[in-house]
Nucleic acid binder design. Structure first.
Ligand code: MN
Ligand code: MN
Ligand code: MN
Ligand code: MN
Lengths: 217, 217
DNA sequence: TCTTATTATTAGGTATGCCTAAAATGGGAG
DNA sequence: CTCCCATTTTAGGCATACCTAATAATAAGA
């Protein structure tokens, strides 16, 4: 069985792979908060075990097997977030942190029970797709609110779940899943924008706008 | 913070303490499934940390601090069992095993949310008392069904949760919490007995009878 | 192309918690 | 009151996953 930390490596590699293609030692070092030396060692072990391929000095890529393991963890993480939000009424900004620990100890039985209780959801409370049990994840394309045109009416597809404070603030100004946002004005000097959410006008910084993924309404 | 294994030591010492008074290295070795040598080492560390007192060659006893830690784990274990049984509809014989892992990673926030959702229960699905958050556990006295007199009418107070197969069998013959059992006949040759559960007569072995704790109805 | 800065790997070492084997202790049998 | 032996502790090691410091490889600039 994969240790908790090995599961974190695999999950992190999966996430970085979507953005970067080949995943570097340094990016893993940063996101997992361990030294590059430790990453090198662990990567060697995971390559021996067949979860990933490693080209020294070039980076790593998950094998089919490794990707499947990663998707299982991601599934458990997102199902658990859904459960915390819908059944235990945790706040949206709290669920990611809790799920980071539970994803590793959730048995397959538990996974199934929760999936059933929740009615087999396909997205989590942040809008992230939940992979199926055999590792299929449908990713819905979208754009960052930063990139929406002035005057456009957009719908919130998903939000960044990692920064709790940011998420809490977004909730407080009314940004939530499936909500409609009208881009009123874009400021070129700092990329902030004025938008209408639910009829009310608010100004949002580029940091916020960049962590909201939207589609045309 | 106490490691997962340290929490298991403390919990196990608490449980054995009720039966044995001073807890021996060998009984911990058996119940935790590690060698006596390992227990000796760990015990030394826990004594240094102030969770227990150790008299070499004589045994250990929890300090107030250690007992409080143990009771926190037990509270989390039993609240979680309750949750698995009532909300996720796990079978009675499955919940103990699952709770063994969750008890260690359940945050205080989670503990509180679950306590609330469940309506602040005082006993778990096996009839074990759930300690309060500040470490008070009310233990209800009872006797083993083995020791009930012939002809007596008893009520099930609690059942042994450790052996899943035994528990599954007990459930299948109708033994459940708060159920009434009439002792029809006691066999002296093997301590088995014939009882009436819910009107139906069944024969139960001494092993089963010993793991059912009852009170006079 | 050569040098330098960045990135990655290897070497050597630590902490935790486990093990086996050897030594110490102390309670009961004689 | 001894001696024996089961129980307990100590000694010496192993695995995992981390670290710092030293070395190696690559990429980038002159
Ligand atoms: Mn998350
Ligand atoms: Mn999420
Ligand atoms: Mn239990
Ligand atoms: Mn229980």
């Amino acid at each position: 069985m994969a240790s908790e930390q090995i599961e974190n490596y695999l999950k992190q590699i999966y996430n970085l792979q979507s953005d970067e293609g080949r995943v570097s030692t340094s990016s893993l070092s940063k996101t997992l908060d361990v030294t590059p030396a430790s990453v090198s060692e662990m990567v060697k072990k995971l390559a021996d075990e067949g979860s990933l391929t490693h080209t020294p000095y070039k980076g790593v890529a998950l094998t089919g097997e490794g990707e499947l393991l990663a998707l299982r963890i991601i599934r458990k993480h997102r199902l658990w977030e859904m459960f915390l939000f819908n059944v235990l009424h945790f706040k949206l900004e709290e669920i990611h942190r809790e799920a980071e620990r539970f994803e590793h100890i959730m048995s397959d039985t538990m996974e199934e029970k929760i999936d059933e209780v929740l009615g087999r959801p396909t997205i989590d409370p942040h809008g992230h797709p939940i992979p199926t049990r055999d590792g299929v994840m449908r990713h819905v394309a979208g754009l960052r609110l930063t990139d929406a045109a002035e005057g456009a009416t957009m719908r919130v597809l998903r939000v960044n779940d990692a920064d709790a404070e940011l998420l809490q603030y977004m909730t407080s100004i009314g940004i939530a899943l499936h909500m409609t946002i009208v881009v009123k004005q874009k400021m070129n000097f700092d990329n902030s924008m004025r938008v209408a959410i639910d009829g009310r006008d608010v100004n949002i910084s580029s940091t916020i706008a960049a962590s909201v993924i939207v589609e045309h309404a």
